[in-house]
């Protein structure tokens, strides 16, 4: 389980306009590139200083590669990060105000309390 790394993916993509578009157009390719190049980057350090041990679990990688946000919820990804990024990805495809947000709630409607743990 690498909940922290899933969050790191959502966080670093969400804050970068080009990556948001890249992830929308090519989720599987973006996740593969990100895991190879970015997953072990220390965010507040020069590029020569890297971690060596961070990798997705298979189900995490697959959920990210398929834009499967209900599965990310189930895996304990931080719901604020997932929501914010997925609004950026897909709100534009809905004509009604809050159309995507309401569809998102509907797709999660099978979950009840307690929700999956999000502690990292």
């Amino acid at each position: 389980m690498s909940r922290y790394l899933v969050n790191k993916f959502l966080y670093t993509v969400d804050r970068h306009p080009d990556l948001v578009e890249r992830y929308r157009e090519d989720p599987r390719g973006t996740v593969a590139w990100w895991e190879a190049e970015e997953a072990n980057r220390l965010l507040n350090c020069v590029s020569q200083e890297r971690s060596t041990w961070l990798a997705f679990a298979d189900d995490e990688r697959e959920a990210l590669a398929t834009h499967d946000y209900p599965r990310l919820f189930e895996l304990g990804a931080h719901p604020f990060l997932t929501l914010t990024l997925f609004i950026a990805l897909f709100e534009r495809d809905h004509e009604q105000p809050l159309g995507f947000q309401l569809e998102y709630a509907q797709r999660l409607s099978g979950y009840s309390l307690p929700y999956p743990d999000i502690t990292t």
């Binding site: 919820f73 931080h78 719901p79 604020f80 990060l81 997932t82 929501l83 809050l98 947000q101 309401l102 998102y104 709630a105 509907q106 999660l108 409607s109 099978g110 979950y111 009840s112 929700y115």
Partner: peptide
């Protein structure tokens, strides 16, 4: 609720 089933009610 943010990013959960009860959001944006």
């Amino acid at each position: 609720e943010l990013g959960g089933p009860r959001q944006f009610g």
